[in-house]
């Protein structure tokens, strides 16, 4: 599709033109939806939650894209929004659970085990269990580097953390995950 090879600059120009605004937005969704979906999915784990967060996120993007400043890349900006939306969703879910006392049902481990394809003996699922055991920031860093292959410079803009700290965080996260897999 021709829109998939369009640059962010071109898409933003089209978005600002009322006659091409909707079409440009559709192209932006198509260009980034998969990357953003998997980023969100790895954080919230189940598809329904990931779909909700992703759609809400794109609606927010529509409302605020006019004010987007091109000092930062659209790609970085979208990742930042999707990260924030995912974390907000998880925090809200945590708050609701603390009221209803359904901690177990909404825990990351429980969600993973609820996946129809979950297999506790497979290393790739153990890897997911290990990732969910990480602190929030380390989890984000590991996912963005290991799965999304995001350069540290870009990650630094998404998470507003120095590249040095991100490298250290990634190293610690990987070591913790390896220990978890070997000991479980």
């Amino acid at each position: 599709m021709s829109t998939e090879i369009q640059s962010d600059e071109e898409l933003l120009l089209q978005f600002r033109d009322p006659s091409t605004k909707e079409r440009a937005f559709e192209s932006i969704i198509k260009k980034y939806q998969e990357k953003l979906y998997w980023h969100i999915r790895r954080l919230v784990i189940n598809h329904e939650d990931a779909n909700d967060v992703l759609q809400n996120m794109f609606i927010k993007v529509w409302k605020s894209l006019d004010n987007f400043r091109e000092e930062s890349q659209l790609y970085t900006w979208l990742y930042r929004i999707s990260t924030n939306e995912s974390l907000t969703f998880l925090n809200n879910q945590k708050k609701r659970n603390s009221i209803s006392l359904d901690d177990e049902e909404y825990s990351p481990a429980y969600k993973l085990k609820s996946d129809p394809h979950f297999d506790a003996n497979k290393l790739e699922w153990k890897l997911q269990m290990a990732i969910q055991s990480l602190p929030e920031k380390q989890k984000l860093v590991f996912n963005l580097r290991y799965y999304d292959e995001m350069p540290y410079e870009q990650m630094s803009k998404v998470l507003e953390t120095s590249t040095g700290a991100l490298k250290a965080s990634y190293h610690h996260a990987a070591k913790k995950i390896e220990d978890f897999i070997l000991n479980h």
Binding site: W38, W125, L127
Partner: peptide, 9 residues
Amino acid sequence: LHGINVFQA
């Protein structure tokens, strides 16, 4: 394990 995606859409 790099590149293996356990989740499905």
